[in-house]
Design a protein around this nucleic acid. Sequence first.
DNA 1: TTGTAAGCGTTATCAT
DNA 2: ATGATAACGCTTACAA
Lengths: 343, 343
Amino acid sequence: MSNPTIHDVAALADVSIKTVSRVLNGEDKVKPATRERVMAAVRQLGYSLNLSARSLSGARNYILGLVFHAGADETAIALQHEYVSAIQIGAINACRANGYHLMMEPLDLTAPDFETRASTLLNMPVMDGFIIMPPLCDHPVIIDMLIKRGANCVRISPSQALADLPLHVGIDDYQAAYDMTGHLLDMGHRRIGFIGGPVDHASAADRFRGFKNVLEGAGCFAASMVRYGDYGWDSGLAAGLDLLTLPERPTAIFALNDMMALGVYSAAHRLNLHIPNDVSVAGIDDTPSSRIATPPLTTVRQPIMAMGFAATEALIKASAGEKSSMNVLFAHELIERDSIGKR
Amino acid sequence: MSNPTIHDVAALADVSIKTVSRVLNGEDKVKPATRERVMAAVRQLGYSLNLSARSLSGARNYILGLVFHAGADETAIALQHEYVSAIQIGAINACRANGYHLMMEPLDLTAPDFETRASTLLNMPVMDGFIIMPPLCDHPVIIDMLIKRGANCVRISPSQALADLPLHVGIDDYQAAYDMTGHLLDMGHRRIGFIGGPVDHASAADRFRGFKNVLEGAGCFAASMVRYGDYGWDSGLAAGLDLLTLPERPTAIFALNDMMALGVYSAAHRLNLHIPNDVSVAGIDDTPSSRIATPPLTTVRQPIMAMGFAATEALIKASAGEKSSMNVLFAHELIERDSIGKR
DNA sequence: TTGTAAGCGTTATCAT
DNA sequence: ATGATAACGCTTACAA
């Protein structure tokens, strides 16, 4: 009833357990005939390696942790989850390609015992490394723990490079917002509403600067048209409602992520405003939702899955001892769809 | 540099490692004073228990695996991922509440080495149990392995109960489709297009029966208005385009899940058809996307997160040896929003 | 190219 | 109420 062990395989193949181990880990110095005999025994026994035992014996664990913020409100999590999901898919695929496993590790930034939980998590020896999502990747407490612990980790879209935490991926947030704002200008818009991101997402500040610089250059920045959201749909709806009922309503609204942009869609819909005839809408991310929205959303594509994949591969290489170099900054791309009209 | 172990804690607290273990696992026969001393040592050392060692020693692992189908195409995964995501959130919360961890385990149903991979996964001793998503939960090979292995598992929304696999959650798929079809009838629709689910999702067949029975009862079932999709957005778009360009186009389209219903939204949009004035649309699931769509989608609510939560709690109880009873069938609810108009 | 022996950090058994 | 010691299944020296 109990699972076969490496000893059973060794006995059946008539070799030592060490040789079985060598075969299982793809080491080179094994005679092909021996290897074949071992594999046959493995198949015959339906043997599968015990991860815990392998971890314990000091080698790698072959387990990575994806650390993300998740508060108590389930619905809110779901609506903000799309970005995490996309990174997750990339990470899962990288894991799958390398024989790794991925653990989902939520952390509630707002919980009273946040620090204790964070410390426990980051000190768990089962994980070879951590993929840290925003905004946690910019949180001083987390950064501090990561450095002190000498943790193997990769940060997703952090606001700044850190010499002690060399692995991270992201896009040029400033430039992304800059490009989209320029596009809006090109399309003839001058009264542009803006929905910023949450204060604790450092990259949101970069995006705001990109937006502001372009508009100030063109002499049409209006602080009265700036609102803030939390990257969630509801906050986009609220800000959209607010902006679109202004006495002089904007001809376009630029939301710093797609989810909030889709909130603006609903605001427009409620006010019987047509997109893009009455109001244009722009986002950032190119999440699946933006593609399937009606009308499809014009946005700045961030290759999120590819970033998740690359980040995870770098982490895996690092956990294997290789010094991994990585394309830190991914190219973004303005995706013109149907939500922006000419003025 | 290396982490403190139970021995370090024991030395510092001046007790045996067994006592430390007792404290850590909340066993009763420990003097309060001793317990306090141990806890102090734990805190002082920043000790955290090694999951691998615990697993190896034969105890529980405190790790669950979420097993879902994921092919090679990343984009397709993303678009079909919303249901998995919702279950995942529920599962994560249940894990969090019980000190468990969740591993994401993709399995490609279409891969040539599917059986080998499935067997390896289901035999991994690191996991205390598995949460099996559709369509894997209905796959004969998987079911067979699960039973043979005597695996601790819970199936999400399987087509039928299995005496050997007592744990599962779901809704009454037949009734859900039945209710929605009845509603469509009530709203005056008679020419109703239908987009079915993939053949390998057994619950899709139940839903189809629900739809067909109502319409046949009303004498307006038309096989010519039945199409099939794969629960993905693109397939909804294609089927929608097809149905809406029929010489006599349907006044309403019922898609078996929200993602395909949103595909119909895009089809309507491309054909310049207004929802619900020109065509009504209905779905099933009540995923986040359906709520934020414009117009908000009328759908049958499935409490997906709650199901994920309950399923996971049952699994945890079972892995702790408790015979867990569980509300297998969750109540569904017709959510009227704005995508269905009166005829 | 292959094998032997030690040890990874925990829980379980059986003492005391 | 507490402790000593033996597993658990694997990898990593080191030997042969």
